[in-house]
Nucleic acid binder design. Structure first.
Lengths: 224, 224
DNA sequence: GGAACGGTTCGGCGCCGCCCGAACCATCCC
DNA sequence: GGGATGGTTCGGGCGGCGCCGAACCGTTCC
């Protein structure tokens, strides 16, 4: 088992941290894309990616002359998320450019495999208000919620899954929880699949389509 | 808000990591104790502690010529715990001395503010078996569990608390979950207060007293 | 075949961060 | 007051890490 310092060291670098946060969109990125994104040379990116892969944070798949990497799993994503959103005290200033980017992501974005931002929080609120998810001693899915989810997916959820059905994930723009876990992932996958939201740009930001506006209203009474 | 790299950097050092892990026992340590524990000079410890305090991981209280530090809160403890127990692959060898220490902690120890080790896992199993805690879509406290807890504490639990009543915390010796959250903390506090367990040595390890053996058997049917 | 492209390896450079010892300050005890 | 103890500050040394450029390798496309 790696030591605490070793694990933390994997993230304790501007470049590697930028890689991990970019990969929070849950997709696979090529080495070159990540290098450009983080503003480093390909050689640097190559070395740093190797460290993250060796540390078990990322997995890689080679395709021809491309090297694609993604987060190794939900645990790795949760770790990145936890470290990112650890905010003991007051906020600090940001650049204008970063603020614009942040604006898009604040509206709606993906957080590894589920929806976040104002959209994610609104969906979470609606599901709690409608009794699909209960907020007593942590978040749980109610029987009504299970039925709702089964209806949405057209199938039952496997009950014995290792992963919790729903997990609370603190939203770093809204400072309020949104829905992670298997339910959050299923909802996000459905939304992408049925074109309720579309990815915009290369980052995590997504935009709600007209169909999505109607679907979210009909499904949960959410106005976006 | 600090960046991911900055937050991770706080833990990405052998000495600071040792401090944080020692403080996982939930108590306040003096600077000198931590320095000896980590095997560094007092001057080094002083500087590193200042960094952890500035980063919001620790809080300090000065008493006379002593400087006591403790983990800043459950969030900080959860972060240390998550980074410590992130084990993507295979275990590595340990020194003999470390193994002995580990043996004591494997039996029973505190994990920030709740009980862990074989004792912690056994208690968690018993509470699930008796229907006090349910393991569907994450851990939740059942109505019976609430009543049980109220009886133990002699008072109701405040329902509107921010902190989840129960949280699953992966045990890094047992590789199985034990009970964290407010319930875990209350149980641990009660056990220490009523002398069911006693701290042994300066670390996290605890020993079950004869009274404790009886209490755990009567309360939850757990044989330790 | 040749050119373009993505990625990797290697040497080298510069900086940062960790640690120590020495001096100093504050508190506590006699 | 004087001595002992716990803690802090400061200068300095050393190692390691992150970065780059250059050379190289394999794939893809013409």
């Amino acid at each position: 088992m790696p030591t605490l310092a070793e694990t933390a060291g994997l993230f304790a670098d501007r470049t590697r941290a930028a890689f991990c946060q970019a990969l929070l969109d849950g997709r696979a990125w090529s080495a070159g894309e990540l290098a450009r994104h983080a503003g480093v040379r390909p050689s640097t990116a190559s070395e740093q990616l190797s460290r993250l892969v060796a540390g078990g944070v990322l997995t890689e798949e080679r395709q021809g002359r491309h090297r694609y990497v993604r987060l190794a799993g939900p645990e790795a994503a949760a770790l990145v998320e936890a470290l990112t959103s650890y905010a003991p005290d007051t906020p600090r200033p940001r650049s204008l450019r970063a603020s614009v980017q942040l604006g898009a992501e604040a509206r709606a974005r993906t957080c590894y495999d589920h929806l976040a931002g104002r959209l994610g929080v609104a969906l979470a609120d609606a599901m709690i208000a409608r009794g699909l998810v209960a907020d007593e001693s942590g978040l749980t899915v109610t029987p009504a919620g299970r039925a709702w989810l089964a209806g949405l997916l057209g199938r039952e959820q496997p009950p014995g899954a290792r992963r919790p059905l729903v997990r609370s994930c603190l939203d770093w723009t809204e400072r309020r929880p949104h829905l992670a876990g298997a339910l959050g992932a299923a909802l996000c996958a459905t939304a992408l699949e049925r074109r309720w939201v579309r990815r915009v740009g290369s980052g995590r930001a997504v935009r709600v389509t007209p169909e999505g506006t109607g679907a979210f209203r009909e499904l949960l009474g959410v106005e976006v």
